[in-house]
Design a protein around this nucleic acid. Structure first.
Lengths: 143, 143
DNA sequence: TTAAAATAATTGTATAATACAACTATATGA
DNA sequence: TCATATAGTTGTATTATACAATTATTTTAA
């Protein structure tokens, strides 16, 4: 039982959150805003859905998702389509503009990370990705 | 040039920030508050310092650190000692109560992480810790 | 078959964490 | 010694979020 690694993770996780939050905070709210990134990603990945479903998938409060969706709609990144079956509910679907913006946003993040990790070897990239994913899977149940 | 791993990191990093922020948000602001954790850690590690120095070390705005320090002082976790040489400035030093609270806070985080990663093998723990640290070091220059 | 309960979404309000700008008090240096 | 620089605080704004109240609609049960 080696506590050292776990202690490192404990501390470095706090530092990571700080730094990433600081770096990714939005400069121009004209474009895709950080907080709505995962919402748009989800719509792109899984197709259209209502606020309730999205909130469950993203593990966020419905009200939070409702606001994020409204903001995406206002920018033209998603379309709000009334559900034909249930007049209370809607489907949000990503628009072409939204898909383009998502691609650009992802690309910008990708490039930042590529540059940041340019001197890591391939195995480190792969390991870090896998472990992050595994950590996130573990976290999922904790919210 | 394998883009896949970098794309995984790009996405999982966003998910990680979301989930960790959600899980670590404070329930009882009587005790040590998440945002001040690294400040108290820093004082514990490097000894007493003024707001300016701490802000540089933590890469935060002076005003942010000033408030965090004031809140720590109000809880009795740090003492605010006037600098004898310069009447404009102060040194914050961790108190015994503060040190105890820091230890408890760290221990609670440690236990959460231990439980979360109980089924990882030792090598994964070690790797994840090392890579997180390495990633944070890379981020440091980007703020 | 209608009244009560449940549900989808929005909106009001509150909080945490932060940065930037304005300000105060003190120190430095030309 | 006065102008400028510096340490720190406080005012204000923003982002991201949750919880509570509300509205509109649907489902259920008497």
């Amino acid at each position: 039982m080696n506590e050292k690694s776990l202690k490192t993770i404990e501390l470095e996780m706090a530092v990571l959150i700080r730094r990433v939050n600081s770096i990714t905070s939005n400069r121009n709210p004209e474009n895709l805003v950080r907080s709505a990134y995962l919402l748009l990603h989800q719509l792109s990945l899984k197709g259209s859905a209502g606020v309730k479903t999205l909130a469950e998938e993203l593990q966020l409060d419905i009200s939070t998702v409702s606001r994020q969706a409204a903001s995406l709609e206002q920018k033209g990144y998603v379309a709000k389509v009334p559900s034909p079956l249930d007049k209370r509910s809607y489907f949000y679907e990503i628009t072409d503009v939204g898909a383009t913006e998502l691609r650009k946003y992802k690309q910008a993040r990708f490039e930042k990370i590529s540059k940041l990790l340019h001197d890591w070897d391939e195995e480190e990239h792969e390991n870090f990705g896998k472990l992050l994913k595994k950590f996130n899977d573990a976290l999922k149940g904790e919210i």
